[in-house]
Design a protein around this nucleic acid. Structure first.
Length: 206
DNA sequence: GACCAGGCACATC
DNA sequence: GATGTGCATGGT
């Protein structure tokens, strides 16, 4: 994949808050739509935890409208910010001493932060070695017969983490490359023409 | 107009 | 525990 596409330079965000906000906004949404929402947040000075805590729901929802599901996502962003202030003084630096597993469990208690969003935050914003399983990764792994068709997210996560060294830079690039393969060759319906993973056996039933 | 996009929570059976 | 549904905009 790296040979085919080169380094992806993920996450496409310039600060940790921006990465975390992007992780929520991109839930079931194309990154193009998220970019517009983030640009709007930046224009309104809402890319920091203080401002995001102070802004009203309606104002926040209006800013992120282009990312879709703007009412639920406004709540989810608020939930994250509330958690950060109430439990960690509103400072991401306070999370540095928490063991990965404990921090992951904490993130999962926040309403609106599920497994993928938690792992994306951990890997791309907090530099923790956890593998991100998204729809593309799951589809690619199943379609290429790397795992049973009915395997769940945890099984997929375990598959990658058990076969790769727990390295932040590696997990970062690996997942980003899988998404690129997915975007180009592994749509839900489209056949996998010219996929760089064609060396693997296809599971045509999936 | 259908399908898709870097999910998640909640209701219902 | 598995399955279905609401949430919403924008591109192909």
């Amino acid at each position: 994949m790296l040979e085919a596409y080169g380094p992806q330079g993920w996450w496409p965000g310039h600060s940790r808050p921006e990465i975390i906000i992007g992780a929520v906004l991109t839930q079931n949404t194309s990154w193009k739509n998220v970019e517009k929402a983030i640009a709007q947040l930046k224009a309104e000075g809402l890319l920091d935890w203080q401002a995001l805590g102070d802004v009203s729901h309606d104002e926040l929802a209006r800013c992120i409208r282009s990312a879709g599901y703007h009412n639920v996502k406004a709540k989810r962003l608020k939930n994250f910010v509330r958690w950060l202030w109430q439990n960690h003084d509103g400072a991401l630096a306070r999370l540095a001493d928490i063991p990965l597993d404990a921090l992951r469990r904490e993130l999962l208690t926040i309403n609106g932060i599920g497994a993928e969003t938690a792992d994306a935050i951990l890997l791309y914003a907090l530099d923790r070695p956890t593998f991100v399983i998204d729809a593309y990764t799951a589809r690619i792994a199943r379609r290429h017969g790397l795992i049973d068709a009915d395997a769940d997210g945890h099984a997929l996560k375990t598959l990658f983490e058990d076969h790769l060294p727990a390295d932040v830079a590696l997990f970062n690039e690996y997942h980003a490359l899988l998404v690129e393969v997915g975007k180009r060759h592994c749509k839900p319906t489209a056949r996998c023409e010219g996929c760089p993973l064609e060396a693997f056996e296809h599971n045509e039933t999936v």
